[in-house]
Amino acid sequence: MKLNRAFRMRLNTKRELNGWIFVAPFVIGFALFFLYPLYQSIRFSLSELEIMPGGFKLHFVGWQNYHKLLFENVKFRRVFVNTMIKTLSDMPLILIFSFFAANLLNQKFRGRFFARVIFFLPVIIGAQTVMHIQSGDFITGMMRSANLAQDAGIFSGLHLEQYLYQMKLPLQFTNYIMAAVNHLPAIINASGIQILIFLAALQSIPSSLYEAAKMEGATAWEYFWKITFPMISPMMLTNIVYTLIDSFMAHNNELVQLIRDTAWSGGGAGYGISVAMSWFYFASIALILAVILGVLSRNVFYHE
């Protein structure tokens, strides 16, 4: 008995050691290329940077940078709130669209393979660098205005808007729908990976569940709410988190741009403020993710 326990101990320590052998690269990388820079950035955010010939000098200023950006910087608060609102309001649209698209792609029809190839394309070609150049482009702008002038069909934005107003829906709701319709291409482009995750999740649902439901005479509506939806809820959570992170980190995100622009303004004086902005932003992201995970992870259904 004693021998057995000693043997098991040895086996456990061995497995523990093996685990560390596998994660060791990450531990080293984390310490060198993440934790140490992170520590330094805390120092930067609490100091003023002075660029001198052949180097730089840090003057400790305490919380002054944070105070400046919250109470003195003209742009930060507005941009911060805008970014938060935009990210949080786009998230449901992206999720609904990508879930819908994944359901479409999961059905059997001719040309499905080709459709999948196209639907995943934004992951490959939806590059920020390309968006950057497009936004200032002359011909793109010209075509956009030409399209606006031509739009007279029933599905054009203007008509839809009138139609929604006539339905006497709450104004905020109408505006939200209109915003969604107007940047549908952007939403489709931001949904590539989410579609992929949902599709994989849909395919991992055992077909025996559907067969059992069919025996009971369930409708498509019941299939969806009683089987599909609970079964993919863990991946719904993953997608919510992924979508948030993706749009918080995007290069065309207004706040990210502000942080970059501030960094090199004022001959190094702006750098401390820029890092303070990043910290403030990071703290808010972490808070939002923590709240979402805390609320939703209780409502997620795990099969096993």
Partner: peptide
């Protein structure tokens, strides 16, 4: 994954 890269950009460069 959730730390904005701008945060560690300059320290990483110096590193």
């Amino acid at each position: 994954m959730i730390v904005p890269p701008e945060l560690i950009m300059v320290p990483l460069f110096l590193n």
